[in-house]
Nucleic acid binder design. Sequence first.
DNA 1: ACTTTCACCACATAAATGTGTAGGCTAAAA
DNA 2: TTTTAGCCTACACATTTATGTGGTGAAAGT
Lengths: 210, 210
Amino acid sequence: MIKVLLYEDSPQLREGLTMLIDGSDGFTVLAAYKNCDHAADEVAAWQPDVILMDIDMPGTNGIEGLKHIRAVNSDVKILMLTVFDDNKNVFEAVKNGANGYILKKTPPAKLLEYIEEAASGGAPMTASIATQVLKMFSQMNNVQSEDYNLSDREKQVLQLLVDGYSYKMIASEMFISIDTVRSHIKKIYEKLHVNSKSEAVAKAFKDKLL
Amino acid sequence: MIKVLLYEDSPQLREGLTMLIDGSDGFTVLAAYKNCDHAADEVAAWQPDVILMDIDMPGTNGIEGLKHIRAVNSDVKILMLTVFDDNKNVFEAVKNGANGYILKKTPPAKLLEYIEEAASGGAPMTASIATQVLKMFSQMNNVQSEDYNLSDREKQVLQLLVDGYSYKMIASEMFISIDTVRSHIKKIYEKLHVNSKSEAVAKAFKDKLL
DNA sequence: ACTTTCACCACATAAATGTGTAGGCTAAAA
DNA sequence: TTTTAGCCTACACATTTATGTGGTGAAAGT
């Protein structure tokens, strides 16, 4: 029996979903709320398996509710429910640990399927949502780190710089003279087209060199 | 008619998939290769709608093939095919613009469904894969940037430090004395629990303070 | 045999940096 | 009101770093 908690402000939809889910074998709706002003407490009290969470709600909205719940419970499966495959909301939901994101127009049979999938550890998503997620992912990871042709020694020095080592410490760490450290660093600056330690460190992160 | 190109090193599976897909209404297999050493050329020649790409192949593997194809064609849908929901590969595939990622044990009927879904712009994923993608997403965006309570002035100084400004430049940029700049920086170091510029800059990136 | 590249070392000077101390100001708490 | 706390500002001192100039030897490419 999959225990479901429901957050949905529209009375009709709330009733409809409750009846649909509660009336299906293997599902039970513990409770249905019209906002998630006290979501964290309610979740703690009911111990549901899956939460259906509408995104657009008066009061504490779905994303906030998600955060509040996740702050105290990283176990319960949370399915976000929305009318639009709105880019920003998908992003926010996904990055705050939602387990799935489905459109309200999902047919009832499919919805039950999704709930089951979520309960068993899956990540049900409407196709349009999945596409968006992948797109976001590839966008955010396409910095295509240029290769600055840093030699091994130079990479090592840069790493130590990033870690806050002083020239002197780097020298002793690498068993070379401080002057050698300096000449490596000079070379690094040339290769990265920067002229200060901070910029080099910043660039190391921006371009994911380390 | 959905035109499919197939990359799979195992002869049996290659034959099997070809027959399955080619024998289904609405699908046609343009060609099937045992590696993607010349994937980019082949894709350009065949103009497929969907590519089924095995990940583990001798010679150029699936991930490399994906990159090569994406380098010249961002349009064709590419479905990665693999035995394992291996974390690293999923990540690589997704970030290089794969449209879907499915396990080889997917039943034939489901497979055809996935191909259709991909062709129509969806992002089909096996449930276990979807779960992983979401997990990666929330991990990578949940550094839960601790709030170090940097004051506005301190944030401004830190930003300028990251951009490679010297103390002197920061002073003139902010219309304060260089000594004040130093005081701010000292305070920043305290708050970030570091004691050098490099570490502060590194922390700024790690914790996405800026 | 030649030049190029790379990792390494040295010295000197000016500039930048880390750190301790401290006053004035504002807002909130006692 | 006084106290407390945080922020912004400022100065002094010792150390570290940046910068420029010079050099060595070994390996790789021509």
